[in-house]
Design a protein around this nucleic acid. Structure first.
Lengths: 210, 210
DNA sequence: CGCCCATGTTACCGATCTGTAACGTCCGGA
DNA sequence: TCCGGACGTTACAGATCGGTAACATGGGCG
């Protein structure tokens, strides 16, 4: 064995990582319930036994995939603070642009929502991951709105959050040419109205996305 | 047999209707892929053979359930016109209230979205139903906004549509106490900002939902 | 070298799924 | 009264699913 699981010196990825990546991909393509563990293992270039040695069950694999997906949001928020330090309003506008860009990728960024729909059992391990992630993202967005000087910060954050979730879902329902394509323009209009209500009209940044 | 399928004079519903209703219910509770045709038939008080005599396959049953769900939107729009005749702005406000009320029911009104997530195959019969329904609802909402004198009618309609879709989905993800509970207030704020932009501030109707 | 452990391979279990065949039953209309 | 069609019942086929057991293999490290 290699000395450490974290410091992987091997050139190709270990089975565990390959399984997670391929599972995420296949879950998006065929739905979580639409793909079996056997297919995941085979597509990942390994076999079912190795999969079950790393993940005790399919449900645990699902939860681990969601945790991995959720982790991708961390560098996103870090970059936001890093690229616009001390300018929360600019960060808010960049948030809109960035999540729109992320949502228009094939991944769509709605793995967690998909899981919530496909696994309605209230005690499924995946649901805890989803709820925790959604709550955390909302808190961060509320904080950003508040620091940006928005008076009704929670209201704006919830509006933007629901708008984003709706855009993601609408994209999955009717394709990328529907209303979701106009998310940036819609979100900017909402921000503008909330900024005006706060008396702070700001730079009147007009980003037309569509 | 009875003379006509439409004029059902029997006191209890026929198997076909019972199957559709129970299928809708079970699909919502366990997910579409999470329930088998055998369970549907049994819960509907009939058996699998009768199910397959009415619906050629499970996929056709799914599509028929979605069509039935989509049909429930027709009386909704009719009531809107009937209760506020000639007052499109009032109809728009009532739209917000009504869809919020509908979305807060256990049904949630997102059967079609669920199907779109659970059945990613692009040529699945259910997808056509979903796309057609979403497009139709958008057109109606755009028309309502336009008649209400909103300048950027499409923009407002898309914002409200995505907001609603986000609220529905968020409710399924994090439960009924999340941001989705504030949908009415958020939607009203958006309408107000678009009305103000159109110069027509109107009655300044302030419906606080949360 | 020789041990250990992650991985690969094969076979299998029991359950469940969609879908079909064959046959019995019952009721409404002609 | 008799016939036809809708409905119920049982059994089954064929496939796939999640999950496990037993064993072979191969490479890193002492």
């Amino acid at each position: 064995m290699m000395g450490n699981d974290e410091l992987v010196s091997c050139c190709v990825k270990r089975p565990r990582e390959r399984i997670i990546e391929m599972a995420q991909l296949l879950f998006r393509k065929h739905g979580i319930r639409g793909v079996g563990v056997d297919a995941i293992a085979e597509e990942a270039g390994t076999n079912k036994m190795t999969l079950y040695r790393h993940f005790g069950s399919k449900d645990e694999l699902i939860a681990e995939c969601l945790r991995e997906t959720a982790r991708t949001a961390d560098p996103f928020w870090r970059d936001l603070e890093q690229n616009f330090p001390g300018d929360p309003l600019a960060q808010l506008h960049e948030w809109v642009r960035a999540v729109a860009s992320y949502a228009s990728m094939e991944a769509g960024g709605c793995d967690l929502v998909t899981a919530a729909f496909e696994l309605p059992e209230p005690d499924h391990p995946a649901r805890q991951v989803v709820e925790a992630f959604k709550h955390e993202q909302r808190q961060k967005l509320v904080g950003l709105c508040r620091k940006a000087g928005i008076e009704e910060a929670e209201k704006l954050a919830d509006t933007l959050g629901l708008l984003l979730e709706g855009a993601r879902v609408n994209r999955r329902s009717v394709g990328p040419d529907g209303p979701s394509a106009r998310f940036v323009a819609l979100a900017e209009a909402v921000i503008a109205s909330f900024s005006a209500a706060s008396g702070k009209v700001g730079e009147e940044r007009q980003v037309e996305g569509a």
